[in-house]
Design a protein around this nucleic acid. Structure first.
Lengths: 266, 266
DNA sequence: CCATCTTTGTGCACGCGTTCACAAAGACAT
DNA sequence: ATGTCTTTGTGAACGCGTGCACAAAGATGG
């Protein structure tokens, strides 16, 4: 439902594939490291290894940016750092606000990777009045009431949500209404946003579950897992069996609303 | 170089596509929420909306698990929760160790999403002797020297790395040597691991850079960005110009080793 | 028991992303 | 200047993932 702006493929921006965009930061990091070691040029092979990808993929990725690189030699490190930075929009300043200053929010505020690129933490926002004024990572926390004002006055377009799942959508709505068009969501919830707003999600729980899946598969290869063992909850899909399980039955001792966010904001 | 075990496609496990596996946790969360509201059944349409995906995709995903679901009715919530949990391997206990107890490590230790599924924090490990014994999230931090012992004694197979980038690979090697086969890496580095070990990466900086790219694109649509403005570093790719930039030249004021990790472990 | 209606399960086509493999480009030596 | 050697840039093939569209399955009502 609802594609990007004027019914464009949404993905695929200026011809640069989304998958490529996602790898550019990886190349940039590797290149920055080389730059600091004053390495003048790199071959696609070397750089690919450093970035952990295939050299053919790397060359194709770079081909979308243009023909930088010299055949028989490789790529000029400094030049490439500049080109990728420009393509990613890192040559300009990006003020960012972090909403939800709990353990995670504080960790993010202290994150060194912010300032290293063009990102600048413009403000820390929390719903707890008790947090107001208290400095975290050298920046005083401000109350949620100030949210709209902070965003408009600082021209912030990127917001980071590190609140509990329950508050995420509400915060998201306010951010969007205030003018935010890019959101990095750490709360374990599916955010609904209008067209034109980008949302990227980071979910620890999901990552762990994916790992568990593969882990189980590895273990199962030898044991051939007891397919239909004496499971505790193997009720066949008999239709309409309404009062099957009251809350707290065998569905395990799980949190009240799915997951607790990465941290409690209070 | 080097595919999965006995030269298997590595991805594609038991016929369940990797993309599907990545979505199962999403479905599980939505289903858990429904379960807590004692909703007996859901249609693919409803569940898809709750999970933020397409209904056709959801049905196809479930088809890989088997034919649960009743035509004309939908899916039995409890039954599906059980099936997905089992498929993901969440019906068993997964002890996890977190290495690097800085801001981020502490935030992860406090993360409620751990315990809610089958994940249990077996130990917190840090290289700082001063941290030893100090409780974080109710669990005493142990020194890195104990790493191998902790892992083998608790039968831990999943490790979380929240150390600085510089220490990540070293920690990774020790974890793998000790028997860990799944790693969730928060350090901004490319980890090299032997076959059979899964690594998933969470990188805040990369996510922000991707957002910045799209953000810039949105802004550029109206201004038609000054392609070749009076940039500061537009050196054409003249080959071999070795001493182009000494450390700290115009490569910007960036961290010593690319990115600082999400947190300092000391 | 039959008709109708809802919703699943999936065959099929399409598009993106990955990889191979090689021709073109340029550096470098003679 | 010419030949050789290295490395890029890319055309083409392939495979995975997505979404459409519909037949089959089963519930529900008469």
């Amino acid at each position: 439902m609802a594609t990007g702006r004027t019914h464009r493929p949404a993905t695929r921006s200026r011809g640069i594939p989304e998958a490529t965009v996602a790898r550019l930061p990886l190349y940039l990091r590797a290149l920055t490291a080389l730059s600091e070691r004053s390495v003048p040029t790199v071959s696609s092979e070397e750089l690919a290894t450093a970035a952990g990808v295939n050299s053919a993929k790397l060359r194709k990725d770079f081909s979308y940016l243009g023909s930088y690189g010299t055949r028989g030699v490789g790529y000029d490190v400094e030049y490439l750092v500049y080109q990728i930075s420009r393509e990613l929009g890192l040559t300009q300043d990006w003020p960012v606000v972090i909403v939800g200053i709990g353990n995670l929010g504080a960790a993010l505020a202290n994150y060194g990777g912010f300032a290293s690129r063009g990102f600048r933490v413009a403000a820390l926002i929390d719903a707890d009045p008790g947090m107001a004024g208290k400095p975290v990572a050298g920046i005083p926390v401000q109350h949620t009431d100030e949210l709209e004002k902070i965003i408009t006055e600082n021209g912030v377009s990127i917001g980071v949500i590190a609140t509990p799942a329950g508050a995420a959508q509400q915060v998201c709505d306010r951010l969007v209404a205030a003018g935010i068009t890019s959101i990095l969501n750490f709360a374990p919830t599916v955010l609904t946003v209008p067209d034109g707003v980008d949302v990227r999600k980071v979910d620890l729980s999901i990552e762990l579950q994916i790992l568990a899946f593969h882990e189980q598969r590895k273990a199962g290869e030898e044991v051939a897992a007891p397919e239909e063992a004496a499971g505790a909850v193997p009720p066949p899909p008999v239709a309409h069996r309404a009062p099957s399980a009251g809350p707290g039955a065998d569905s395990g001792r799980q949190g009240p609303d799915g997951d607790v966010p990465a941290v409690m904001p209070a």
